[in-house]
């Protein structure tokens, strides 16, 4: 994909998001959990949605400028986005989310070596001495350091309690 195409696509996504922000997100997600009569009479400058509205206006304006600049641009660079690397990145992110989800169940010391092992392997290292070494040393060192140094307890597994 050409760089300027990417810029234009980003610009369009930003504009779509702005529309969503104005018509749905701000009206739905700027709410007050209290019935508070003093808020009804407050000046508009103090209202919670004053700054967000101002901000999104500026955002739309500068997005348009970016799009215009992109269409005029003569730079012919390409964005590096290969299918292979995108798949690898998605896998790493997915692993991280699963890791966070499993932390409270299995605990830091059990699940972290596995997480490290998968990541190191995914990034292409095949020397098992290194892989197992770092996967074990790193989490244990961290646990030791955090607890002994700072009395901070890293997530413990509910399963073992």
């Amino acid at each position: 994909m050409k760089f300027k195409t990417a810029e234009i696509i980003t610009g369009i996504i930003f504009l779509l998001y702005s529309a969503l922000y104005i018509f749905w997100i701000t009206p739905t997600y700027v709410t007050n959990a209290l019935n508070d009569s003093s808020i009804q009479t407050i000046a508009w400058t103090l209202r919670p949605e004053a700054l967000p509205n101002l901000n999104i206006g500026a955002f739309i304006f500068f997005t348009c400028i970016m799009i215009i600049q992109a269409t005029r641009s003569k730079v012919d660079e390409l964005v590096e986005l290969s299918f292979n690397s995108s798949f690898k990145l998605l896998f790493i992110i997915a692993c991280s989310f699963i890791y966070v989800a499993l932390l409270p169940i299995f605990g830091f010391l059990t699940i972290s070596p596995l997480f490290m092992l998968i990541l190191v392997y995914t990034l292409g290292l095949r020397d098992w001495r290194y892989i197992i070494g770092i996967s074990l040393v790193m989490p244990f060192l961290m646990d030791f350091f955090f607890y002994q140094g700072f009395q901070i307890i890293l997530p413990e597994g509910q399963l073992w309690k």
């Binding site: 010391l109 059990t110 070596p113 074990l136 040393v137 244990f140 060192l141 646990d143 030791f144 607890y147 002994q148 073992w160």
Partner: peptide
């Protein structure tokens, strides 16, 4: 529970005696 024990042993070998002792 066996897995934990194994991990704990490695931990001791690594010299993390105090922290493990508490746990």
């Amino acid at each position: 529970m066996k897995k934990i024990k194994i991990i704990k042993n490695i931990g001791c070998i690594l010299g993390i005696v105090i922290s493990m002792g508490l746990m």
